[in-house]
């Protein structure tokens, strides 16, 4: 039954351009490290893959109308769980990252219970508060977590290409699952809640239930991303809970395109690339009044870029790409027809 479904799905999808774009992107992501080769690029690509999972998990939660401002809590919980399991019990990280995801989802579920009644800003602040509480607890129980100084995490795969391919594999699986969820009835419910909670309640959607589902699923992927992140950096410390890590997925999702599948992917590629490659211009920048302006000019430029993007592309870069896609791949006659109608 199941295999039949898959075969028919493949048959169907080979007809659509989207499928080919998907295949092209996957093969591109597999080939590009072989072209770039330098260890910085492979590191950056791996970070992109990990942040794709993290940003997508945040985006899934935001799709259900719950914009979290404390997702770093789940990144950290996933990372610490997996790293500590490997350190203390010798559990292999490849299993540990999924346990980390499950633990994070469990905590996410409990936090979700306090959040389902809350509206947007209240929810944002409560999740932010939980990330602060998580940080305090991890540094308070330092004897157990070793979080204050940090510690060396076990290797998940040998660094470089093997880790990159593993990260791409896991990221692809996660994106596929999130895509499937968003296409399913559950995804429909999420979007309905996002658009209008009281109306979706009226048409019989159990909003509390679906919001909890969104919380648990999202925090599972965030925890998984945290595990990958911790084992990729080979180091974890309490700074993983920093608010910057909470705002990162928001920025990635918004710049890429909120509520879309491709948005967080594009966003994490753009932001990680800027963060990692822009410092290359440092050597051309001067010292002014005893201050090396490089980092400050870079960050200032990033800020201006972000504001300009969101002003001119309020639906993110993906909306621009969609326009380009329609421009190139849609029959102009057909488009004109639609316009006329």
């Amino acid at each position: 039954m199941f295999t039949k479904d898959i075969i028919s799905w493949i048959k169907q999808s080979t007809k659509s351009t989207k499928f080919y774009i998907f295949v092209t992107l996957i093969s591109f992501s597999l080939v590009i490290p072989l072209v770039l080769r330098d260890s910085l690029s492979i590191r950056v690509l791996t970070l992109m893959a990990i942040f794709t999972i993290y940003a997508s998990s945040w985006n899934l939660l935001a799709s259900s109308g719950q914009g979290s401002l404390g997702h770093a809590a789940f990144l950290g919980v996933g990372g610490f769980t997996s790293a500590l399991l490997a350190l203390n019990l010798g559990i292999p990280p490849i299993i540990g990252i999924f346990i980390g995801g499950v633990v994070s989802a469990g905590i996410g579920f409990l936090i979700g219970l306090t959040c389902v009644r809350l509206k947007a800003w209240f929810l944002g602040m409560v999740t932010f508060g939980f990330s602060i509480i998580a940080e305090t607890l991890v540094s308070q129980f330092d004897d157990f977590t070793h979080g204050i100084l940090g510690f060396r995490t076990a290797p998940l795969a040998s660094s470089g290409l093997p880790f990159y391919y593993l990260a791409v594999l896991i990221a692809t699986l996660c994106i596929a699952i999130i895509y499937y969820i968003m296409k399913s009835k559950m995804g429909l419910a999420f979007r309905a809640i996002h658009q209008n909670q009281s109306e979706s309640k009226m048409i019989g959607i159990n909003t509390a239930k679906y919001k909890l589902y969104a919380f648990a699923i999202s925090t599972f992927f965030a925890g998984l991303a945290g595990g990958l992140y911790a084992h990729f950096l080979r180091y974890i410390r309490v700074e993983i809970f920093t608010p910057a890590n909470s705002f990162e997925p928001l920025m990635m999702s918004v710049i890429g395109g909120l509520g879309t599948i491709e948005g967080p992917i594009i966003g994490s590629i753009i932001l990680v690339a800027i963060d990692s490659y822009l410092p290359n211009i440092d050597k051309f920048l001067p010292i002014v009044h005893g201050i090396f302006v490089g980092p400050y000019l870079r960050l200032l430029g990033l800020g201006i870029f972000l504001v300009i993007v969101v002003i001119f592309l309020p639906k993110g870069v993906s909306s621009l790409l969609r326009k380009m896609y329609n421009y190139f791949f849609t029959d102009t006659k057909k488009a004109n027809n639609i316009e006329r109608k």
Binding site: L40, R43, V44, L47, G150, Y229, L233, Y235, I236, R237, E239, I240, T242, A244, D275, S276, P279
Partner: peptide, 9 residues
């Protein structure tokens, strides 16, 4: 605070 940034640098 950013471990990843330090490693990248």
């Amino acid at each position: 605070t950013d471990t990843a940034a330090a490693l990248t640098a």
